[in-house]
Amino acid sequence: MAHAPVKETCLVPIRIADNLPARRTLESEGVIVMGESEAARQDIRPLRIALLNLMPDKITTETQIARLLGATPLQVELELLRISGHVSKNTSAGHLAEFYRPWDEVRTEKFDGLIVTGAPVETIAYTEVTYWDELRQIFDWSQTHVHHTLTICWGAMAALYHFHGVDKHPLEEKASGVFPHWNRAPATPWMRGLPDVFDVPVSRWSEVRSADVPASAGLTVLAESDETGLSLLADPAHRALHMFNHLEYDTLTLAREFARDEGAYVPRHYFPGDDPKANPLNTWRGHGHILFGNWINQVYQTTPFDLADIGELVGA
């Protein structure tokens, strides 16, 4: 595979709409963003990354993901997607209409990468989720129209259930906090550069258990925690990574969840001394940048240059 050379003076990483709220946040943090006219002058093919955002607060999630994608030295064109038949109650219709495309509109298009977020439906059976049928179609579509997929939290659980029949288990209490995780595959492209033990934010009401993962599925455990179990699986047969936790989280995301849930639980290992009045310290920011950077780099290294060939190659 041959990519057009990247000019050293034109390393501009992420292309998003000029008036997307995330743009102002990213610019204030020093993340380089670009508009359509600037992108047109680049003599390279940008990576087309679709974000299927299933979270209620879509603006926060799109900002978190764009921040990590924008930290790489590759030009990324981010396409925001939503479930076609589902109406979000927490994001304005105007924002969705202006910045999001329903999946039905893009189902004939091809993408280098697809990110599927979590969703607050962990306590509901998959088949009872209102958009489950469409999500199953999207997972199947990713096998022919997407080069590599990254699923997050409930999105990862749903993908594992769809592709491998591995069900989730409800937890007696919410797994919430920042937990140390073992790097089980440091030599793989996905985990390269991550420490042997690294912190990961966790926020979920369900879990996938190692004992339920069939040995014949070809899945590789990349990261796991002694306290909260599986965290990251490689699924080469479906060109996917499944991450059950939240390396994309901001410093205060868990604090906002704690306030939203009126202190029903205190996120563990998050507030200094487990004191909710203390300001949390971000101990995972670099780990998130490394993982997303590794994913983007591997997508870039293995995706066909011709978009029409995407989905034809396996084992990337």
Rank of each mutant, 00 (worst) to 15 (best):
D18W: 05
A71D: 13
E122I: 08
E122G: 08
T63Y: 03
V76S: 00
E105I: 04
D275P: 01
E105K: 15
K110L: 06
S231H: 11
S206V: 15
G165S: 11
L241I: 10
L52F: 07
D112F: 03
E8S: 15
G35Q: 07
M157V: 08
D112K: 02
G85A: 12
I49K: 00
A308C: 10
A278F: 09
D309K: 13
R239T: 02
V200G: 00
L69Q: 00
T117Y: 04
P214T: 03
V208R: 00
L20A: 05
D235I: 01
L254C: 06
P170Y: 11
P56W: 12
V178Y: 00
V166G: 06
I152A: 01
D57Y: 05
Y100G: 00
G155A: 07
L160I: 13
L74E: 02
G263H: 08
T108P: 08
G165F: 09
G155L: 03
T302E: 05
A237M: 11
L313T: 14
A156L: 07
V202M: 07
Y131V: 06
H95P: 05
G273V: 05
E79L: 11
V314Q: 14
A175N: 06
R15C: 08
F271I: 05
M34Y: 04
P102Q: 08
T149A: 11
I32D: 13
A71H: 09
D43T: 13
T253G: 04
E27F: 05
D309G: 11
E262I: 14
D167I: 08
E38H: 14
D306V: 12
E8D: 15
D18S: 13
W103R: 08
M191Y: 01
K277A: 12
N297R: 11
L232Q: 01
E38C: 14
L114H: 00
P46N: 09
T72F: 02
S210H: 15
I44A: 04
S28N: 12
R101N: 06
T25A: 13
H162T: 06
E134L: 07
T144N: 15
C153L: 06
P13I: 02
D226E: 14
V121T: 08
I16T: 04
Q64C: 06
T117R: 02
M1P: 07
S231M: 14
N90D: 14
H238T: 11
W284F: 07
E227H: 11
A119I: 03
A71Y: 10
P280N: 11
L307M: 10
Y249T: 02
N53D: 14
W103C: 09
P180V: 04
P21E: 15
D133P: 09
A255I: 07
G85Y: 15
